[in-house]
Amino acid sequence: MILINLLPHREAARKRRRESFYVTLGAAALLGGLIAGAAYVWYQAQISTQQSKNSYLQAEIKKLESEIKEISTLQAEITALKARQQAVEDLQGDRNMPVHLLNELVRQLPDGVYLASMKQTDRTVTLQGMAQSNERVSELLRNLGSGSPWLVKPELIEITAGTVTLNPRDQRRVANFTMRIGLKRPTDVPKPAAGAAGAAGAATPAVKG
């Protein structure tokens, strides 16, 4: 016996396929939503972690900047203290500079040279005097330039011929000179030389004739 199906089976098959498609589409949409949600949560967690790290780094940077400012302030204070200490040492040393100057002039002044005046400005000393000859002036320059640890850079400014009257019948030719020399501070002089010069400074200064 032959059976004939008169129901609309094609439409039923299409309906099942359509329903299956909608179910699959819904499942895919749900899965996509879950994946998107999970990705969003993960990215938010990463952003939050990075923001926490950034906040920590900014706090550490501010702390370092504060420490750097403190170090700069300390360095400035140390520099100022060193400058004041150097100024005090220079003032203490400058009190003995006239003694060293007179002592060195006594030691380095050759025979036949006489000093008429001496003027000190800061660490520069101007000498005026007379000598029996130009050679005596040259000898004085050599002595001041190489034989003294306290005097530096002797410079002859002027030398002129003159005469000195010892008595109505005795007139002698002399060389009038003006020279300039530099004077070192005690802090600029090596310790052995400073010690030797200080010991010699106890002697009473006098000008050689």
Rank of each mutant, 00 (worst) to 15 (best):
I4T: 12
N5V: 00
L6T: 13
L7W: 12
H9G: 11
E11C: 06
R14Q: 03
R16T: 05
R18Q: 09
Y22F: 10
Y22G: 09
G26Y: 05
G26N: 11
A27C: 07
L30A: 06
L30F: 02
G33W: 12
L34P: 08
I35H: 14
A38Y: 10
A38H: 08
A38G: 08
Y40M: 13
W42G: 15
W42A: 13
Y43H: 14
I47E: 14
S48N: 15
Q50P: 06
S52I: 08
S52A: 11
K53F: 03
K53L: 06
K53N: 01
N54M: 05
S55R: 09
L57I: 06
Q58V: 00
A59T: 11
K62F: 11
E65H: 02
I68L: 11
K69D: 14
I71P: 02
S72A: 08
Q75L: 06
I78K: 09
I78C: 05
A80P: 01
L91E: 15
D94S: 15
N96M: 14
V99Q: 00
L101Q: 05
L102H: 02
N103Q: 15
E104Y: 04
L105N: 04
L105P: 03
R107Y: 05
R107N: 09
Q108T: 09
L109Y: 03
V113Y: 02
Y114D: 08
A116W: 05
M118Y: 02
Q120M: 10
Q120Y: 01
T121C: 04
R123N: 13
R123G: 11
V125L: 03
Q132W: 08
S133H: 00
E135Y: 09
V137R: 04
S138F: 08
R142I: 05
R142D: 10
N143K: 01
G145L: 04
P149F: 00
W150I: 09
L151I: 11
L151V: 08
E155C: 07
I159K: 10
T163H: 13
V164L: 15
V164R: 12
T165G: 06
T165A: 11
N167I: 05
N167K: 01
R173H: 12
V174I: 07
V174H: 05
A175S: 10
A175H: 03
F177A: 03
R180A: 01
I181W: 01
G182E: 02
G182S: 02
L183N: 01
P186A: 02
D188F: 03
V189R: 00
A194R: 03
A196L: 09
A197Q: 07
A197V: 07
G198M: 10
A200C: 08
A202R: 15
T204G: 14
P205S: 06
P205L: 06
V207C: 12
K208M: 06
K208W: 00
